[in-house]
Design a protein around this nucleic acid. Sequence first.
DNA 1: CTAGAATGTTTACGATGCTTACATTAGACC
DNA 2: GGTCTAATGTAAGCATCGTAAACATTCTAG
Lengths: 200, 200
Amino acid sequence: MSPPKAAYHHGDLRAACVRAAMELLEESGEAALSLRAVARRAGVSPAAPYRHYADREALVSAVAALGYRELAERLAAAHPSPSTPEQLTSVAVAYVQFALERPALFRIMFGEPCDRDNDERIAATAAVSQYLREIVGRVFPEADAEAMATATWALVHGLAFLHLDGKLDASTPSAVADRVTAAIHALLNATIHGGHLAGN
Amino acid sequence: MSPPKAAYHHGDLRAACVRAAMELLEESGEAALSLRAVARRAGVSPAAPYRHYADREALVSAVAALGYRELAERLAAAHPSPSTPEQLTSVAVAYVQFALERPALFRIMFGEPCDRDNDERIAATAAVSQYLREIVGRVFPEADAEAMATATWALVHGLAFLHLDGKLDASTPSAVADRVTAAIHALLNATIHGGHLAGN
DNA sequence: CTAGAATGTTTACGATGCTTACATTAGACC
DNA sequence: GGTCTAATGTAAGCATCGTAAACATTCTAG
């Protein structure tokens, strides 16, 4: 059907590996994500994936890159182009919920020493970063865009991890959404002893 | 010398294991942290650690717990009891720098599916959380303490991870400190289209 | 149709986590 | 002091893993 040009013996082992890896990850967590298991699931010998991925980490990076793309979709689905703090908040909630719905994937995307040489990965995270910067620029036009984008990403990213690690209660999605919303509002409304902080 | 009561065959394998594990972690990263390597370094048979730790994860949890304690010390050293935003910021910088100086440890503390049954670990993270809440209560007495503490921790935690993962440049400590400071200031000074956000 | 390149397979090695059965030693009791 | 028991460490072994090398198969170009 599609032009991925049906391949030799298997069909398209390269893609099948990422797919199998993603499935294993979602089904049984990161511990279950072994190259051998991926090969088994793809119906192929244990050494076959090495024709397409230099080592285990290369495969993991490919999975992470896919994860970034899916995260981007998810954020866009929450709101295509937020321009108010409320809309920004809904994107933040989507970010955290993505992390909670796919914890193993999220950990692979962010919780591992990352492969800085993987182009796919670099491009994917640059896209997320870029997307965030645009949003922040719209929502906080008066702020230092760079610093504000960093702060926003960090805030949301931190909320995701703290929930993921059980540091914050994540038993129900709505509790999470409320906490994320409250945290963002608290920060934005913070009045420092009634005044403003000295400029950066 | 000290009263740790010299033990049986080894001396104090339990403690020696955490120490060896921490060393391996700092020297060669998480990948090098195997139970066998720990046993080797402690000069003991590969199965010996199992007398003290049910499995690999139990040892890792012990290392993480130690990490929490060291992080707490580090934060206290930055400022014993911060009560201004500037002092809070210096604690935040210390948090991020701890993560960058001991990346493997930090990842083990926060980047792994955590063992929720480990008392040491629970107590240690509760302490950090409690400490943060006190600070925030002093610095932002008018804010919703709960939400504000959450937001602050998340912001700092997120900054740590984004630097750790190369999403933000962490080449020099001062660049990191500047960015952390700028991010916090940007958020606290954010004027949402000139106004405030609707209550919680 | 043939040759070479691309793709998978077999087999093997060393390392790991963990279990079971066994050996040693420390310390309590008499 | 001598003996018993439980705490501690050892030996040996299993299943799994990542990865490499040699080999086989199949696609594609000429």
